[in-house]
Amino acid sequence: MKQQTPKIKDIPTQVKNPDLVERRRRQIVDAAVQLFIEKGFHKTTTRQIANAAGFSIGSLYEYVASKEDVLYMVCDAIHAEVQRGLQSALARAGKGRDALSEMIREYFLVCHRMSDHILLIYQETQALPTQWRENVLESELGISGVFVKVLAQMATSGNMPHLDEHSIELIAHNITVLGHMWAFRRWFLARHYSIEDYIKLQTDFILGISTRSSEDIHSNL
């Protein structure tokens, strides 16, 4: 039998109030991100995380069991924020090119707000236990999957020339990576583009790709 991948709810807590757990864990996440970036995951101690979050070390362990739990919570916070943003954008925009444009915009804005968190995922995900790491990768694929669904709907409805399954999947992954690119190359990009400029240019680029035929795309690969 395949072992079930753990979820954020599986992180042990001694606190029974779920709203309080969510608030306190968000404080822990925000404090830990800066420490992990400045010192590195392995050199940061749980006591330092507790101090930065305004907790005693004992209080910290009421909400998490280990430093690895905190790192996983950082990853989960990003994915949860992205999913909320994409669902909200999809509800606002409806269908077609407007839906895709609105979703790209919302996704890039989340990447902008959570740039430090995204950098941390790239730097430290390998420090997670295997099952946590697998769950992070599943969540990443889930984000790309939302874009796959919208692109497939556009192809089916005639809002763009038909693209085959592989081309749609590749475009969806391009979108997710372009959002991450703002985070890990902002040291350069932010000097030359505002986030609004970046969103517009990349959206035009993505929509340009998505309106080409599969034959055009594959002939240039």
Rank of each mutant, 00 (worst) to 15 (best):
I37D: 11
V74Y: 02
I78Y: 07
Q126M: 00
I104R: 02
I209V: 07
L86V: 07
I206D: 07
T156L: 10
L221W: 13
F36T: 01
I209N: 00
E215W: 09
L207V: 12
V82Y: 04
T125L: 08
A183I: 07
R47S: 08
G94H: 08
G85A: 14
R23Y: 12
L109V: 10
L20P: 00
Q87F: 12
R97C: 07
D116K: 07
D30S: 10
S101D: 14
S66G: 04
L170W: 06
A50S: 05
Q3I: 11
G179E: 03
V64M: 04
L128V: 01
E165V: 10
A80G: 07
K9A: 14
V110G: 02
K149M: 06
T5E: 08
S219Y: 01
S194I: 12
I209Y: 00
A99K: 09
N51H: 12
A53C: 09
F41L: 09
K39T: 04
Y198T: 08
G158P: 09
L178P: 01
F205A: 13
H218D: 10
R133F: 00
L71N: 04
E62N: 14
L109F: 13
V33N: 06
S115I: 10
E140S: 04
H79M: 08
G145P: 01
H192I: 11
E196Y: 13
L35V: 05
L170V: 14
A190F: 00
Q83G: 04
Y122N: 05
Q202P: 01
M160H: 11
S88T: 14
I49H: 03
Q202F: 07
A91G: 06
R92C: 09
L20I: 08
I104P: 08
Q83S: 12
V177L: 15
T203P: 09
V15P: 01
D69S: 05
D69Q: 05
H117T: 03
L109Y: 13
R26L: 15
E22H: 13
L60Q: 10
F41R: 06
S88P: 03
S210G: 10
Y122W: 10
N159T: 14
E165G: 02
Q48E: 15
I217Q: 08
K39Q: 13
S167L: 05
T13H: 03
T130K: 11
S56M: 01
L207D: 12
Q83E: 12
N220E: 14
V33D: 03
E165A: 13
M1Y: 10
K43H: 11
I175Q: 03
S59Q: 15
L151E: 07
P6K: 01
I199Q: 09
E62F: 10
Q123F: 04
A172D: 05
